[in-house]
């Protein structure tokens, strides 16, 4: 079947089997390998992408279902060479070790910051809750939380425009 999915603002059409999962559509059909592929069972959250701005596990969404929705992947975070504050936070606060969970963690962080834009400061508890569906195989959660907090604190200044 022909599936058209909007990824990072660009529409992509491919002929795929209805059973194709979004994670494989992104990686194998579009070559967007920034979205990682982990447990396959919707447990580990490595494959997180944004679907209409909310983080979802792309191993448990059909590519066909994603048609008509706006999908955001890690490739869409950096704009014209300017890192998203979340990416910068992971760099500043050493939020990544092996890097496997990093794209998904950053997208969940982006969604959290977008939701809380203009609201009260994020607590560590809220950050931990937001990423609780995603496993860091290196167990580097403390620095991930610090990275997201850094992004929250620098968000307004760093966002272009």
């Amino acid at each position: 079947m022909n599936v058209t999915v909007s990824v990072n603002g660009h529409e992509h059409s491919r002929d795929v089997e209805p059973r194709m999962l979004l994670v494989h559509f992104l990686r194998d059909e579009l070559g967007l390998t920034g979205t990682h592929w982990g447990c396959d069972t919707s447990n580990c959250g490595i494959c997180a992408v944004l679907m209409d701005g909310a983080p979802v596990k792309s191993c448990t969404v059909l590519a066909a279902t994603a048609a008509g929705h706006e999908i955001g992947t890690v490739e869409g975070l950096e704009v014209d060479g300017v890192l998203d504050p979340v990416q910068q936070g992971f760099s500043e606060m050493h939020g990544l070790q092996c890097g496997f969970c990093t794209p998904g963690m950053m997208l969940t962080a982006r969604a959290l910051l977008d939701r809380r834009a203009g609201g009260p400061a994020l607590t560590d508890q809220e950050i931990r809750e937001a990423i609780s569906g995603q496993i860091c195989r290196c167990t580097g959660y403390a620095s991930i939380v610090r990275s997201i907090r850094w992004a929250a604190e620098h968000c307004n200044q760093e966002l272009p425009g």
Partner: peptide
């Protein structure tokens, strides 16, 4: 129930 990502779907 599950986690925030699963609860989104």
């Amino acid at each position: 129930i599950a986690d925030p990502l699963v609860r989104n779907r």
